[in-house]
């Protein structure tokens, strides 16, 4: 299994893990879950689309990151997974 991890659990950051998978799976933990869950999910889906990935498992542990941070962390995790 290929895996890539990026980011951190510092405030305003997110720790994102991407793993190869049979199907698309997105798991989100967030300190602002009730307020921003849908927005975080949308950013993840959009980023996966840009990266042309459909069957991966994404685990996002969010500490209040803004959209661009989540996107950057996910892109890095994907790149690291592909290099692994």
């Amino acid at each position: 299994m290929k895996i890539g991890i990026a980011g951190s659990l510092e405030s305003n950051d997110a720790l994102i893990t991407v793993k190869s998978s049979e199907k698309l799976e997105i798991i989100i933990e967030s300190i602002v879950y009730d307020f921003f869950y849908e927005q975080i999910k949308a950013v993840i889906l959009d980023t996966l689309k840009t990266a042309n990935l459909s069957n991966v498992c994404v685990i996002c542990k969010d500490k209040g990151a803004l959209d661009y941070t989540i996107r950057a962390r996910l892109l890095t995790a994907i790149e690291r997974m592909e290099k692994a």
């Binding site: 009730d34 307020f35 959209d67």
Partner: peptide
């Protein structure tokens, strides 16, 4: 503009 609009509780 920075955060997005939080969902109402």
């Amino acid at each position: 503009e920075i955060t997005g609009v939080p969902k109402n509780q």
